[in-house]
Design a protein around this nucleic acid. Structure first.
Length: 893
DNA sequence: GTGTTGCATCTTTTT
DNA sequence: GATGCAACAC
């Protein structure tokens, strides 16, 4: 009986450089025999494990099984580990929680733990499921385990939540009524579909924005709330909620008709599958005896349940109908995470999962990893100080043996351009004086839009750089168009993608034709793809096929041509053409490429290049995985992320400075890190200022940012930053003030404006008459190469003086660390005169105001309320400014 | 049916 | 400042 299990076919090892594709999943013995297997030996019994292997031999001729690999010595795997790490590696038995602070060697522990399980015979490679969040993390883990245990690592499942689910769903697609080449919709596709749905339901897009609905549906799916359940829970008197309930139901129906799953479905559907089909669940539980989850703090509810289902934790409670509860013990569960690095609550991650792990799993063991192997003590002390301000947090204190290191360098610029200039000069100087290569340097920002100013300066100074993230490759229009063609080829029912390309490039099939086809599909209860086929029917077929009414002859001819194109491409696929060849044909025969080439628009030239790159990706795919079909390629494309494109740090060349958001930076490290935009309103982000939960998340984000640095850490802010096309004045980030001042060497401690204000009678009362210094002070010319620049390179004595004065820095701008919400109306420089009681800001449209720099103006609009209130003020001469009242020196007259 | 213009919104963060 | 969408003109 046991051999049945042992003889599971092994996945091929083709495409060694690539993550295994779903096709590599071993077939399942699903005739029910499995459930009848008496479990003589609990999987966790090492002796039995070893015996099995010795007796049965490894299945499928895997002479390279890890345990036979010479040199895989359990004791050797423990060398160089500290006591806590070691405990985590050797732990056996119940669930294990590893609380791993930043830089504490988490991946090392995980990989060594896996290798140790194999070396001691506690597990065979095929029994291991390791789940990460990013493909990059998965690849790294696979590679590092590979170096420890050899090719046997190829038999483990090391993948992201999403791709693990796709692998499972692909195998089980029949049970779900899906074609195996089902489409995966990304956020943009989902929104498109939601727009169609909302239009069909006649919902006013102003009151019920499809985008909001799309996000809400995503949230619901992350909570495993299906449309029926949601409809039940919603009160009909609430128009928004009931509209949402209807939209959710129709949206899901449309997805199903299109044989498509959205991102959240991948998890939710897998959970549903495992819960609804005990035999399927049992198959995976038997297979995966060790489940390891990385970044556990970022799991959402659906992922949490998925882990429980896979590990078989809840078996006894929820329904093993076969009445054989003692059969299969739960898999051994290891989760690794750090609540302080949870930065994805906004998309449903719940920090609860890690905080309450011990309650969820009463037998759990917890191991804390606090020794940091990455950063200097100065950096860690700063990070600790910032994160310690978060309420309700489990105390944790990172420490290192590597010494204090250089001071953290702080810099206050007058504008984002000045900030960028400082960074560029500093990178230059570090290169000259300390041999720092551009590749050693990373610049972080809160939002992608901030990369612009940095890029401008880097281009000008000739420092090589690379922006990671931003508008992502697979979200570019031309790429989405091209991929839509491939999706439509692979999945003829994929309505969203068919509609996307129906008139791309232009073939005279506009809204009207599309509507007619959609109406036909609805009337005849067929898919949109079938409607196209019906319209294209000609000659004899015409009699057997319902007519698509309302199409002009011309439109019908165009639809026919479109349909023929798709048919040709599908024939190519059937004939075994590679994804690259199909892509080629699609772009060529549709005329898409020709249209771009003929275009005058310089942007279109870039588009052609991007398509060439996509083609290169497809060609490379075919090379590495010759067996891979169109579906495999599309799956790969659907599940890639930005962070996957981050170059590995150990390039031989000088490399490039890496620019990215803090979110993207998670899990990475750099010798030199610049954390930019440390302003209240930028980082922490504006939208987080009023919610303490969100503020906590911002703080964790700051913690992540600071702990990326190995040796040198820079924090900088700009007193004025252009956002929404308008300059805004922003005070120092509260996170800066949390950093103990003795750790920071302020190269420049306040902005020109702040210096002037202070000089003019300062923080107290009425120094805010009409502005004597105009907008000139924002320009780059008014200070620049003068005194402080040389100061910044000069002796540190002067720096110290500046730092000494930094206490005053927060004076005029923001008072203390009081709750923002309560004090916002009265804080800030904007308050020389008492404000009228009641409405916090006391401004109305039509009021006359003065502004310290812009002079006299009239309020022409008000937006937001409380601390985020913004006024649109016309200062004459076409100057209409949007000002965040809380921080703007505006006085009502 | 297509192209242009003006308007609104956008700036979190991602598998 | 950019992009996408809706309304309008051709």
């Amino acid at each position: 009986m046991i051999s049945l299990f042992d003889n599971l076919p092994l996945p091929g090892l083709a495409g060694a450089g690539l993550p295994p594709l779903p096709a590599a999943v071993p077939p399942r013995d699903d005739d029910g025999t499995e459930s009848g297997i008496p479990s003589g030996a609990p999987a966790s019994d090492p002796v039995e494990r070893a015996r099995r292997r010795a007796a049965g031999g490894a299945g499928g001729g895997d002479g390279s099984d890890g345990a036979r690999r010479p040199g895989l010595d359990p004791a050797a795997l423990l060398e160089g580990l500290n006591p806590q790490q070691r405990a985590a590696v050797v732990h056996t038995g119940g669930p294990l929680l590893i609380v791993a602070g930043a830089g504490s060697g988490k991946t090392r522990v995980l990989t060594h733990r896996i290798a140790h399980l194999l070396a001691t015979g506690q597990a065979r490679p095929g029994e291991i499921l390791a789940i990460t969040f990013t493909n990059k993390a998965a690849a790294e883990m696979r590679e590092r385990v590979g170096t420890l245990v050899g090719p046997a690592a190829g038999r483990m499942w090391v993948s992201t939540f999403h791709s693990a689910c796709v692998r499972i769903l692909r195998r089980e697609h029949e049970v779900l009524g899906l074609r195996s080449s089902f489409s995966i919709y990304d956020a943009a596709d989902s929104q498109r579909l939601m727009s169609l749905v909302c239009r069909q339901l006649d919902l006013d897009p102003k009151r019920y924005p499809p985008k909001t609905f799309s996000r809400k549906v995503s949230d619901l799916k992350n909570e495993l709330v299906d449309p029926e359940e949601y409809a039940r829970s919603v009160s009909e008197s609430n128009p928004f909620d009931s509209a949402l309930a209807r939209a959710y139901a129709l949206y899901n129906e449309r997805l199903r008709q299109a044989h498509a799953l959205d991102f959240d479905d991948l998890i939710m559907t897998t959970v549903n599958l495992l819960q609804a089909f005990p035999a399927v669940a049992e198959h995976y539980r038997r297979r995966f005896r060790h489940v390891l989850v990385d970044e556990y703090q970022d799991t959402n509810h659906a992922q949490y349940v998925l882990v429980r289902e896979l590990a078989g934790v809840d078996r006894d409670q929820d329904g093993r109908a076969d009445g054989d509860p003692g059969d299969l013990p739960p898999a051994e569960l290891t989760v690794v995470g750090d609540a302080d690095q949870s930065i994805y609550a906004f998309r449903g991650a719940t920090i609860r999962n890690i905080l309450e792990f011990e309650e969820d799993y009463p037998q759990a063991t917890t191991i804390l990893l606090e020794q940091n192997y990455r950063s200097t003590q100065n950096i860690l002390s700063a990070a600790n100080a910032v994160i310690s301000q978060n309420p309700g947090r489990r105390a944790k204190n990172l420490w290192t043996e590597s010494g204090d290191g250089p001071s953290i360098v702080g810099y206050v610029a007058d504008s984002e351009h000045e900030e960028a200039r400082f960074i560029a000069e500093e990178i230059d100087r570090l290169g000259d004086e300390h041999g720092v290569r551009p590749g050693d340097v990373a610049v972080f920002y809160r939002t992608n839009a901030q990369s612009r100013a940095l890029e401008e300066v880097l281009v000008r100074t000739g420092i090589p750089y690379k922006v990671v993230g931003g508008t992502r490759f697979y979200e570019r229009r031309e790429i989405k168009d091209a991929v839509a063609y491939l999706r439509a080829v692979a999945n003829p029912d994929d309505a969203v993608n068919l509609r996307r390309i129906l008139n791309v490039p232009k073939r005279g099939l506009g809204d009207r034709a599309e509507a007619m086809l959609a109406a036909h599909a609805e009337r005849e209860r067929v898919s949109f793809g079938q409607a196209i086929a019906d319209a294209a029917a000609s000659g004899e077929e015409r009699d057997t096929v319902p007519e698509v009414i309302g199409l002009t002859t011309r439109a019908r001819n165009q639809v026919r041509a479109f349909h023929e194109l798709l048919t040709e491409l599908r024939d190519m696929e059937t004939a075994g053409a590679s994804p690259a060849e199909i892509l080629d044909a699609a772009l060529d025969r549709s005329g898409y490429l020709a249209e771009l080439r003929a275009s005058e628009d310089p942007q279109d030239a870039t588009r052609v290049e991007n398509l060439a790159e996509l083609h290169a990706v497809a060609a490379e795919f075919a090379e590495l995985d010759p067996e891979g079909g169109l579906g495999d390629f599309l799956e790969r494309v659907a599940l890639v992320a930005d962070s996957d494109q981050i170059p590995d740090s150990d390039g031989v060349d000088q490399g490039q400075v890496t620019l990215m958001t803090v979110h993207t930076a998670k899990g990475l490290e750099f010798p030199v890190v610049f954390v930019t935009g440390m302003e209240d309103g930028t980082f922490p982000h504006q939208r987080s200022l009023t919610e303490s939960d969100e503020l906590s998340e911002e703080r964790r984000l700051a913690y992540v940012a600071l702990t990326r640095a190995r040796e040198r850490l820079y924090v900088s802010r700009a007193a004025v930053r252009t956002a929404w096309g308008m300059p805004q004045e922003l005070p120092a980030s509260r996170f800066l003030e949390d950093i103990p001042s003795e750790l920071v060497d302020w190269r420049r401690a306040e902005s020109s404006m702040e210096t002037l204000r202070r000089g003019r009678g300062g923080s107290g009362g009425g120094g805010y008459g009409s502005g004597g210094f105009g907008s000139r002070s924002y320009g780059s010319g008014s200070y620049g190469s003068g005194s402080y620049r040389s100061g910044s390179y000069g002796g540190s004595g002067q720096d110290r003086d500046v730092r000494g004065g930094s206490g005053a820095r927060s004076g005029p701008v923001r008072t203390g660390k009081l709750g923002v919400k309560e004090t916002s109306a009265r804080t800030g420089a904007a308050d020389p005169a008492p404000r009228p009681a009641g409405e916090g800001i006391g401004l109305d449209v039509g009021d006359k105001v003065t502004h310290d720099s812009y002079g006299l103006g009239t309020v022409v609009g008000l937006e937001g309320a409380g601390s985020s209130a913004v006024a649109k003020i016309d200062f004459g001469g076409g100057q209409v400014k949007r000002l965040l009242l809380r921080y703007s020196p505006v006085t009502k007259l």
